[in-house]
Design a protein around this nucleic acid. Sequence first.
DNA 1: ATAAAACCTCAAGTATGCTTGAGGTCAATA
DNA 2: TATTGACCTCAAGCATACTTGAGGTTTTAT
Lengths: 154, 154
Amino acid sequence: MSQPKKLPSVLSVGEVARRSGVAVSTLHFYETKGLIAAERSRGNQRRYARDVLRRLSIIRVAIDLGFTLVEITELLKPIPPGVTPSAQDVKNMIEGWRHAINQRIEGLALLRDNLDGCIGCGCLSKDDCPLRNPDDSLSSQGAGAVLLTKQTSR
Amino acid sequence: MSQPKKLPSVLSVGEVARRSGVAVSTLHFYETKGLIAAERSRGNQRRYARDVLRRLSIIRVAIDLGFTLVEITELLKPIPPGVTPSAQDVKNMIEGWRHAINQRIEGLALLRDNLDGCIGCGCLSKDDCPLRNPDDSLSSQGAGAVLLTKQTSR
DNA sequence: ATAAAACCTCAAGTATGCTTGAGGTCAATA
DNA sequence: TATTGACCTCAAGCATACTTGAGGTTTTAT
């Protein structure tokens, strides 16, 4: 029998775009930012290793989590483009992500619980809303909205 | 005795900036976007009702949650600038926020749990990582990273 | 062999969310 | 009352994250 339909070992930029849902122009852009990398064909066209798809998945998820491209570049440092990382590298990176995610969740839960309080007290028009400027007497320190904001970890 | 130190009933733009931690230029900007409003003094200077501080708290929190200014404008529609909303209005609005927050938390938890799986299997270099492109055979539909991404509710 | 589709680079443009600056007015206080 | 700090408008600038377009080359399919 002939070989089972073989997946190509390198991908053109168009294939990567189709499979990842990321526009070609964005792939170019990410490359200039050092987020992804590609070999070149004899004729100077990009040829991506398959791992770029995994990498793009991670990048898009991170963007949705609110990380900037610069932050993502940092987070991905343990896994340089085109390099197959050690299992330990991967574990370390994922632990870092887990931490960031947990912090984000904690901030959101805190905010939600504060809002729950608001529902009970209808306090947006009162003086004791947790979303309210904590105390105008603190105003000289520019406190205010900053308090809650900080807890969301951004 | 003299009156207890009275909080001024209207605030200048500088006072609002100091108390809210939001820059004057940003207050101007938010005004052009319809997020906040102010009366004017005889000499055309902004005079804010105290409720603007509460409003700004909400706006900043929402920004940290990843809402755009346009979305926040929508979310704040039940509470037009300068109007004191009914308790019911407030409850409705907060319920909407709660919903959005819960969705965000669910997406993050899902992602975190997927990452937990990764820690067990070290699979970023394998074929079964939940962050990985789900299946290259789906590629013709531009699936890929989109799957996980969507679940984060943005 | 050739034509169409895909690719290349580089520059400029877009949207969001602000900040900065120029040029001038208002208001609090010494 | 005079001056200084706070305020005003409007235009332009900046960072992030991309997209669009011009002008030209490579690949692929027939």
